Amino acid sequence: MKTKAIRSPYDYYLLFRQLEEHGKTIYGPKFLLHDVDRPVVIKLLAYFLQDEAIAAVEGIDLHKGILLTGKIGCGKTSLISLIRALAPESYRPHMISCRQISFEFSKIGYDVISRYSTEAFFPYTNVPKVHCFDDLGVEQTVNYWGNNCNVMGEILLSRYDLFISNKMITHVTTNLNSQELEEHYGNRLRSRMRAMFNLLPFHADSIDKRQ
Rank of each mutant, 00 (worst) to 15 (best):
T3M: 00
D37P: 10
H203I: 02
G186R: 10
A120N: 05
L157N: 08
L49M: 01
P29N: 03
F105Y: 15
S206W: 08
K129F: 06
L45Y: 02
N143S: 14
S165H: 06
R188K: 07
F197Y: 13
A53K: 13
N175C: 04
I155K: 07
P39I: 02
R188N: 14
P201Q: 02
A53T: 08
R84Q: 13
L86P: 03
L181Y: 05
Y124E: 12
S8D: 12
K107D: 14
S102R: 02
F122H: 14
T173L: 02
N187Q: 14
H131C: 08
Y144K: 13
Y185C: 07
P88Q: 06
V57Q: 08
T77S: 15
H131E: 12
K30S: 10
F48L: 03
G75P: 11
S102Q: 11
I155H: 09
Y27W: 11
P29G: 03
H203G: 06
A53S: 15
V40E: 05
T141Y: 10
S191M: 05
L200H: 03
S78T: 09
C132H: 05
A195V: 11
G73E: 12
E20T: 07
I113S: 07
K43H: 02
R99H: 03
A85W: 02
R210C: 11
P123N: 08
D61I: 04
N175R: 03
Y27M: 10
Y185S: 04
R7H: 07
V36T: 13
C98K: 00
Y110A: 15
L68R: 04
D161A: 14
C98P: 00
T25K: 13
R210Y: 13
Q18A: 07
A46R: 02
E21K: 14
C98M: 00
P29I: 06
S117D: 10
E180F: 02
V41Q: 04
K24L: 04
I72S: 12
R190V: 09
I108P: 00
N198A: 03
M152Y: 03
K107S: 15
D135R: 00
N187H: 12
V41H: 03
N147I: 11
R84P: 11
L14A: 13
L44V: 06
D11M: 06
K4D: 14
L49H: 01
Q211F: 08
E52S: 14
T77M: 08
Y160T: 07
L32A: 09
A5E: 15
R194E: 12
H171C: 15
S102N: 08
R92H: 04
S90I: 12
I6V: 15
I80Y: 02
S158M: 11
N143K: 09
I169W: 10
L189P: 04
R7Y: 09
A195H: 06
T25Y: 09
V36E: 15
Y124C: 01
D134H: 01
M1R: 01
M196Y: 04
H94R: 12
I54P: 00
P201L: 01
L33N: 14
L19C: 04
V57L: 01
K43I: 00
T141N: 11
